[in-house]
């Protein structure tokens, strides 16, 4: 059973006065997240990431399509007992203490007071907030609020956790701690759905990643699948290249660079790769390895978005 799935999910924010101002936030969005995964949803601002989460949580009504969480077709109030959510720019009542926030949202999750009270200290400890439990939220820093938000999202021991920019405002040490917490939660079998602008972080912890732009799903796959390129190759060789090799290769191959015993080449297709290999072999060069080159998730993301804009 999928933890999260959507089928042709569409959301149009209509402007009834001026139709031209209507915005398609999600366009025929189909995705499937397996249980026990950390899934990262990436996209530039306004891509539709938050809209997707909000549809799943019942905050936004979809215009079309369907979605389900843990096999329950949405909208469904009851399934939210098994969900935790850390929204972006959350606002907790400033007059409450951290502990009281936990009690409030535990109660709203349908838990009884004793149960919430017993879970609160351990969760606050988990996010490093135990010493600030009795302090009023209005005195908290942004990072402390994020930590409290994460603890709050875990109060009902959810099976699926939605985190929208969880490390926003958190210092590097705190980010590492949050990543460790997420890994631990994953090892407990929880599904984590992550929206983040910090691609390097998503790359570090996500099992699968989807890239969304202007409401359209551009690509989905594991981090490896997304970062590997079809056009960039690395060819290892022994010996030295003949003098005329550069000239000869430049005439047929798109772009290439030689660094010590490695040729990095940007090729149009497999025929160019074969051509390059033939050339090397013709000159009696021994090839040690051929590999598709990887880019960082950030480069891959930027390339995808650039291509989308260009098209």
């Amino acid at each position: 059973m999928s933890a999260i799935s959507s089928e042709s999910l569409t959301k149009v924010y209509s402007d009834f006065v001026n139709k031209k101002l209507s915005v398609t936030a999600l366009n025929d969005f189909t995705i499937n997240v397996e249980q026990g995964q950390i899934f990262g949803l990436l996209g530039p601002n306004g891509a539709g990431k938050t809209t997707f989460i909000k549809i799943l949580l019942g905050l936004v009504n979809p215009t079309g399509g369907r979605a389900s969480i843990l096999g329950t077709l949405l909208p469904d109030v009851k399934v939210r007992e098994r969900i935790g959510y850390l929204p972006e720019n959350h606002r907790y009542p400033g007059y409450l203490t951290g502990e009281q926030v936990m009690l409030l949202f535990g109660g709203l999750s349908g838990m009884n007071h004793a149960e919430t009270k017993s879970r609160t200290p351990s969760l606050l400890k988990l996010v490093g907030m135990e010493q600030w439990a009795k302090m009023k939220v209005k005195k908290y820093s942004k990072g402390m609020m994020q930590r409290l938000g994460l603890a709050q999202s875990l109060i009902n021991n959810p099976d699926v956790l939605f985190l929208d920019e969880p490390t926003d405002g958190v210092d590097p040490v705190g980010r590492k701690e949050i990543r460790d917490i997420l890994k631990r939660l994953k090892s407990e079998g929880k599904t984590i759905f992550l929206n983040s602008h910090i691609l390097s972080e998503v790359e570090l912890i996500s099992d699968r990643v989807a890239i969304l732009d202007k409401g359209k799903l551009l690509k989905v796959g594991t981090v490896d699948e997304l970062t590997v390129t079809d056009t960039n190759y690395e060819i290892g060789f022994t010996g030295s290249l003949p003098e005329n090799f550069h000239h000869e290769a430049a005439a047929t191959v798109m772009k290439f660079r030689v660094d010590k015993q490695i040729i990095s080449a940007e090729l149009k297709d497999a025929s160019e790769l074969n051509h390059l290999i033939d050339m090397l072999r013709r000159h009696g060069i021994d090839i040690t390895h051929i590999a598709k080159k990887r880019t960082s998730l950030e480069d891959s993301f930027i390339n995808l978005i650039k291509r989308e804009v260009a098209s």
Binding site: L57, R80, P87, H90, R91, L108, S109, G110, Q152
Partner: peptide, 13 residues
């Protein structure tokens, strides 16, 4: 308000 309603409505409410 944005940021508050999200917290309330993400609960089974």
């Amino acid at each position: 308000e944005k940021g508050t309603v999200d917290l309330y409505l993400s609960k089974p409410l």
